[in-house]
């Protein structure tokens, strides 16, 4: 369809059209050069900082010197808490919505609607909520646990949407033949549907991780600023994104290490992105069969 549209349109180019199509090439060119500018700047500024010692030593002098080891550990712990909570809830909800809920069921519609709103909530509002609920009301304080739980609320809509898409891509014949064999729905789900939907699950997982790692505003008042090595989940821990923010805004002379941290963050995200597109490529191939 895309190709036919292209051909259709190209056959008749009048004078003014030539000018307009020039403009249509100009905009992507500008966007691309801006992208290269941003990425190039981060790489140029960060590559000098990036070495093994930077990744494995603690920050010194409020981050101007030294590395980011405790910050990487905190980031991973926050991510771990986030996934440990959001994965069961997210996958469970997606299974219910995709497999056990008819289209017009009130409960399913209500859950869907509320997830749609949740997906649009600004991250700073998640931060306020996390601070009021997890840190204050539940008494977890500024801790990795508070931060991870706040992020869990944030990535739920992403996880659920991707898992649901994965499940609905499983051919209906699977369910029919399994039902005709008298297999329980639980076993059908466990042995047939979930394995077949694994690529969708993985894409959701990877997207959720990407969103969680990039997040800053939701963590400032939940996981806090402390840049020491965390000893428990109730310790405050500084994530990589907060480290970049703090170094560039609050620490004069912290730009060099901020560049280094930004490059590490970008590299992690590029890796995640590559995994996601590899998986969804595999995914769309299985879909076409």
């Amino acid at each position: 369809m895309n190709l036919s549209g292209l051909k259709m349109i190209r056959q008749n180019q009048y004078g003014l059209d030539k000018v307009i199509s020039l403009f249509f090439w100009l905009v992507p060119l500008i966007v691309t050069s801006l992208f290269i500018w941003i990425l190039g700047d981060i790489i140029r500024g960060g590559i000098g900082q990036l070495n093994w010692a930077f990744l494995t030593t603690a920050p010194l002098d409020t981050g101007r010197q030294g590395g980011i080891a405790p910050i990487l550990v905190s980031t991973l712990l926050i991510l771990g808490v986030c996934l440990a909570v959001s994965l069961p809830i997210g996958i469970g909800t997606a299974i219910l919505l995709a497999e056990f809920t008819p289209n017009h069921n009130w409960f399913g519609r209500l859950v869907r609607r509320s997830l749609d709103v949740l997906a649009g909530v600004p991250s700073i509002v998640f931060g306020l909520f996390g601070n009021a609920f997890f840190a204050k009301t539940l008494g977890l304080g500024f801790s990795i646990l508070s931060g991870g739980l706040t992020l869990a609320c944030m990535v739920l809509p992403i996880l659920i949407r991707a898992t649901e898409t994965g499940l609905s891509a499983v051919p209906q014949e699977y369910r029919l033949s399994s039902a005709s064999l008298g297999i329980s729905r639980t076993s059908t789900l466990w042995h047939l549907l979930l394995p077949a939907a694994t690529p969708g699950l993985l894409v959701g997982l990877v997207l959720g991780i990407g969103r969680a790692i990039a997040e800053t505003a939701a963590l400032i008042f939940t996981s806090g600023y402390v840049d020491r090595m965390p000893t428990s989940l109730l310790d405050s821990g500084r994530s990589l994104s907060i480290h970049i923010f703090d170094l560039s805004m609050n620490v004069t002379g912290g730009d060099a290490n901020a560049y280094g941290s930004a490059l590490v963050l970008i590299l992690i995200l590029l890796l995640i992105n590559a995994i996601a597109s590899y998986l969804s490529g595999k995914y769309s191939k299985t879909l076409k069969v």
Binding site: I38, I42, A214, E215, T216, L265, L269, N273
Partner: peptide, 14 residues
């Protein structure tokens, strides 16, 4: 996929 803090940092220094 670029985190907002990286956009902010780039904006701030460039």
């Amino acid at each position: 996929g670029i985190p907002s803090v990286v956009y902010g940092f780039w904006g701030l220094v460039v």
